[in-house]
Amino acid sequence: MIVAKGLTKKYEDFVAVDGITFSVKRGESFGLLGPNGAGKSTTMRMIASTSQRTSGDLTILGKDPNKFGPEIRAHLGVVPQQDSHDRELKTWENLYIYGRYFGLSRKFLKAKIVELLEFAQLTDKRDTKVSALSGGMQRRLTIARGMVNEPEILMLDEPTTGLDPQARHILWDRLFRLKEEGVTLVITTHYMDEAEQLCDRLIVMDKGKIMAEGAPAELIKKYSSKEVLEVRFGSKNNAEAGQKIAHLGDRIETLPDRILVYSEDGEKILKQIHKMGLEPQTSLVRRSSLEDVFLRLTGRTLVD
């Protein structure tokens, strides 16, 4: 559905997206994972045909966005990173007028709005001005709005940033349902749990480049070990302790606040550390995550 080859975006001299190549298949849930400034939103806007690429090839549903902007956008549902509701209008009017922008009939929209308000759990806020909605409500309204034209591809730029955990889970649940209905999802996030939960396949981006590509489990397997032992010796002692235990496990990462030891069996490593006479203040064995993949690829953490 989406094919990008050497896709590049420059703002004056600054290269925001640097020759990335990827493709998204129908019905899949595709992720762009990366820290702030990685170029995710810029990539999303180029796909959404609201930003012109500087160079490279991009086709969406076989069409070049430079030539078929309005036509491509009719197929897409866009959930921008920042909520941008029409503050002069009420909740239902926002959905209504957005549907009208696509040329949809009043009759169709009347029924659609009922359905979308239900979906976004905003039925009782139908006649409220959007400026009076909470952050989570506004976010859900943006997502509902993105679905008004029954898009084949739903583009979600950081859909849950700024939401509390409960609101996030509700949203994830909604997105699962959409995926089951066959909607192709393109999602950016800097939360690794979100990427693991929602994405069939993803690219890991950093500084405008693709660092890795694959299914979450595949990437973890390829770039990390099965388990991770996290130990903390206190911020002053971590560096020194890190050197002492450097030979343990497959690999270790020493961060300012903790040391990560990658291995197949975290408990075993912890025992070895105790045997060396070292006493970590806290220790935790967990499964490897995309966070570890990112750390391995870039030497930095996703969320700072």
Binding site: A74, F102, L104, E115, E150, L178
Partner: peptide, 29 residues
Amino acid sequence: MSLINATVDSAIAIAERRRGKIGAEFYAG
């Protein structure tokens, strides 16, 4: 989701009406 789109024009059909017309990249009519 799409219980009700049988009789009405989809956003796609509406947008495609302007295909090939001059200015289709910046004007949807």
